[in-house]
Design a protein around this nucleic acid. Structure first.
Length: 484
RNA sequence: GGCUCGGUGGUGAAAUGGUUAACACAUCGCCCUCUCAAGGCGACAUUCACGGGUUCAAACCCCGUCCGAGUCACCA
């Protein structure tokens, strides 16, 4: 079997959206599964759509995801250049387009764009389907040569014999067959000399020895037209892997245009690149085994083109959030601390122990962005209502809480050592002595320490973080409030 | 409108002729618990868009219908 080579070929027109990233992932997985090459090619043949900085976003996204490309504009390779506008300088597209003209598989066309559009409008208004029958096809070689030499603007358009059918096998959709008469003759070379996507794609995929073309299924219906070019040039047709769309909802694809979340938006919200990648791998593909958490490396092993789905998958942010939480919970403590430190620092300015704070956060955070709000009571005790002390399940009310707080204060004040065990023994011991459930003592203390109904960490963890002085202060404050 | 592709629970999906249609997210209960989470347990599709047919047997095969998406650019 020949070497497996896949490519990710984005246009630098803005942010990287999730559907695009998933296509890149699948292309990467197909290559790596077979120890092949994954390359990056920039398709910038539409000069009017270039967006400043878009290429950097592509590099950054691939790097953040660990989708390392073996060849590309920034890393080089034997099949360069890897940017189509640069490839054009050597004249390859024009050369092949003219070669097709010589082979009578394409022709030169001088028609005005507006004229064709007008014709199309008329026919479609009547409800007919429009296939442009180009009068330029009948032009003699001499006339063509003359007009071209005279500097007249032209375009090179594919010739398609309307008789017969064209079919091909897609790895995920199976055999696709279309009647040639429904195929319109697409433009290969634009009047500005740039190739169209349709043409450049075929030329470059062949020249770069791409074995497997991985792309969205919006190309499924034009694939036969591409195949006609491969055949005309006597080139081998690559394997096709068309992927189903990633949807925003039942009716709409996910798109940057609609302001849907891009990869960088998700990262900014506190999602981990590994979790995002893992999640999108599962949109449109399912592993053979009953498992969902996969590292990129594991995905390379488990991935199988045959298990790619044919129908669109709706992007469910809730499930991504769950998965993100899974990644966070499974992370080793040191790594977690490192990751979470900036978020803690954002909310906590006082020098409380970051490792303790991180410890209390772990198991509770599913989105990094939630951290600052979870910690908003650490630096300053918020003003709170004493009704917080009322909790039916804990069997506490303001009066009980007051007693608990007073007793807790006393026992805590007498503590020589301030560590987890000491605090635990003091408070739980108190509950035992009073012959009540732990919650009756601990719940009020937690409220006094935080001023909040819900907190990461319990009373003991919080007391440990605050240290003796602040803990006692906050309990006194609670007693004061309850006594008022 | 033509062509191409698709249609299993709210979501991702498994199961491609054979017991009660996996699993996961979400939701709802219960348990655990100093809160919230996390964790544990359980509930949740009499049914696989619909209608026919083939078969002893169909979510899986065939036909038709409906619905949806893609495409029909000098955009990719």
């Amino acid at each position: 079997m020949e070497r497996v080579r896949t490519r990710f070929a984005p246009s630098p027109t803005g942010y990287m959206h999730i559907g695009n990233l998933r296509t890149a992932l699948y292309a990467y997985l197909v290559a790596k599964k077979h120890n092949g090459d994954f390359l990056l090619r920039i398709e910038d043949t539409d000069q009017s759509r270039q967006v400043e900085g878009a290429i950097d976003i592509i590099y950054e996204t691939l790097a953040a995801c660990g989708l390392k490309h073996d060849e590309g504009p920034d890393v080089g390779g034997e099949y360069g250049p890897y940017v189509q506008s640069e490839r054009m300088k050597s004249g390859i597209y024009k050369e092949y387009a003219w070669k097709l003209v010589d082979l009578h598989k394409a022709h030169v066309c001088f028609c005005k764009e507006e004229d064709i559009a007008a014709q199309k409008e008329v026919i479609e208004a009547r409800g007919g389907s429009f296939i442009y029958d180009d009068p330029c096809k009948k032009l003699s070689d001499e006339e063509v040569r003359q007009r071209v030499d005279a500097g007249e603007e032209y375009v090179i358009r594919q010739n398609i014999d309307p008789n017969g059918k064209t079919s091909f096998d897609d790895e995920v959709y199976g055999r696709i067959t279309v009647d040639n008469e429904t195929l319109d003759e697409m433009i290969l070379l634009k009047s500005d000399g740039f190739p169209t996507y349709n043409f450049a794609n075929v030329i470059d995929d062949h020249l770069m020895a791409i074995s497997d073309v991985v792309r969205g299924n919006e190309y499924l219906s034009s694939a036969p037209k591409y195949n006609l070019i491969y055949e005309a040039l006597g080139w081998e047709i690559p394997r096709y892997i068309h992927c189903p769309p990633v949807m925003k909802d039942e009716h709409h694809k996910l798109s940057k245009r609609n302001g849907d979340a891009s990869f960088q938006d998700l990262v900014a919200k506190g999602y981990l690149p590994e979790a995002i990648l893992n999640y999108i791998a599962l949109l449109g593909w399912s592993p053979a085994e009953d498992r969902e958490i996969y590292s990129l490396e594991e995905l390379c092993q488990a991935f199988d083109v045959k298990r790619i789905n044919t129908s669109g998958a709706i992007f469910d942010i809730e499930k991504l959030k769950w998965m993100n939480g899974e990644y966070l919970r499974r992370m080793d403590p040191e790594k977690y601390l490192e990751l979470v430190r900036p978020y803690i620092d954002q909310a906590v300015k006082k020098p409380y122990d970051r490792a303790l704070l991180a410890g209390v956060l772990k198991e509770r955070v599913s989105l990094l962005n939630e951290i600052p709000e979870m910690l908003d009571f650490i630096d300053e005790l918020p003003d709170y209502d004493t009704s917080l002390y009322i909790n039916k399940k804990m069997k506490t009310d303001e009066a009980i809480a007051l007693d608990s707080l007073k007793a807790s204060l006393e026992v805590l004040e007498g503590l020589e050592e301030w560590n987890h065990d000491a605090i635990y023994n003091a408070l739980v011991g108190l509950a035992q002595k009073m012959e009540v459930k732990n919650g009756k003592v601990l719940y009020p203390v937690r409220v006094a320490l935080s001023g909040k109904a819900f907190t990461p960490g319990g009373a003991i963890e919080l007391a440990l973080i605050f240290g003796k002085e602040e803990t006692l202060n906050r309990i006194r404050k609670g007693i004061e409030k309850l006594s008022a």
